[in-house]
């Protein structure tokens, strides 16, 4: 269970090694390392404040790492500009929704395809034929995605005032519009009812298989984690305290202590 730090894992793998992030005196991540093989679904669990979202923010270059390395598909992820991360095939969702509230659901999804399109200011202002073609293609793809996630009905509604579960799906659709190979989901089940969680888990599994996705999911819903993930990494106070198959991690004494406290 030592952190693996191979030089360059083959095709599409994510390797995190020795990752450390400090905010002033607080060490949010402390020497965290793990590998995600392509096609896997990895659950990232841990009590609040364990550093799960900080880890996501490092992977998407929102935070600078103080130490450590992150390689994705053989490339040094920490040297990539924040806006270029999605171009490598990495998309994410946010814990408390990161939607664009004054845009329609469809336009939110279309922003997801930003990195896959070319139109610049001048070409768009002149509405050149290639811009029209690109726009038609993007719209068709977005509509397909909206249909797949059951969002066609709300496509022209602004992305506010819809049920939370629907907005979560909108955010998922937006991330998928980027055609990611690695998808980072930050608490996708938060705020969903029991039935919705099961439905969402089915949807996610189907999407993963159809689109060949590699998933890292931060989630507190243990039923979801146990049923969906191949591997689980548990963080506590920025340190990795357990890693392994879901059932293994669930019974790990360190994990039990982190969640329930020490037995008296």
């Amino acid at each position: 269970m030592t952190p693996t730090s191979p030089p360059a894992p083959p095709g599409g793998a994510l390797a995190v090694a020795g990752l450390t992030v400090r905010f002033g005196g607080i060490t949010a991540l402390d020497d965290v390392g793990f590998t995600v093989e392509p096609g896997r679904t990895v659950g990232l669990i841990g009590p609040n404040g364990a550093g799960k979202t900080t880890l996501f923010n490092c992977l998407t270059r929102r935070y600078e790492a103080d130490e450590g390395t992150v390689t994705y598909d053989g490339a040094d992820l920490l040297a990539v500009a924040p806006h270029a991360v999605v171009g490598l095939g990495i998309a994410r969702t946010f814990q408390n929704l990161g939607l664009f509230p004054r845009m329609t659901v469809r336009d939110n999804v279309l922003v997801g395809a930003h990195a896959r399109a070319r139109a610049g200011f001048a070409a768009a202002a002149l509405r050149l034929p290639r811009v029209r073609r690109e726009e038609a293609r993007l719209r068709a793809e977005a509509d397909e995605l909206l249909a797949r996630l059951g969002l066609t009905d709300v496509a022209d509604r602004p992305a506010t005032g819809l049920p939370f579960g629907t907005l979560k799906r909108v955010e998922l659709a937006r991330a998928l519009a980027a055609r990611p190979r690695l998808l980072l989901l930050d608490e996708p089940c938060n705020g969903l009812s029991h039935g919705e969680v099961a439905e969402f888990a089915d949807l996610l599994r189907a999407l993963r298989d159809d689109l060949d996705l590699t998933l890292i999911v931060v989630e507190h819903h243990m039923g979801f984690v146990m049923g969906t993930c191949d591997r689980v990494v548990c963080l506590e106070f920025g340190r990795k305290i357990a890693e392994g198959a879901p059932a293994e991690v669930q019974n790990d004494p360190n994990v039990l202590r982190a969640y329930l406290g020490t037995a008296a």
Binding site: V85, L99, F100, V111, H114, A178
Partner: peptide
């Protein structure tokens, strides 16, 4: 305008 952080994550 709506969410700078999310815009950047989407590649803007």
């Amino acid at each position: 305008r709506d969410n700078e952080a999310a815009a950047e994550v989407m590649g803007v």
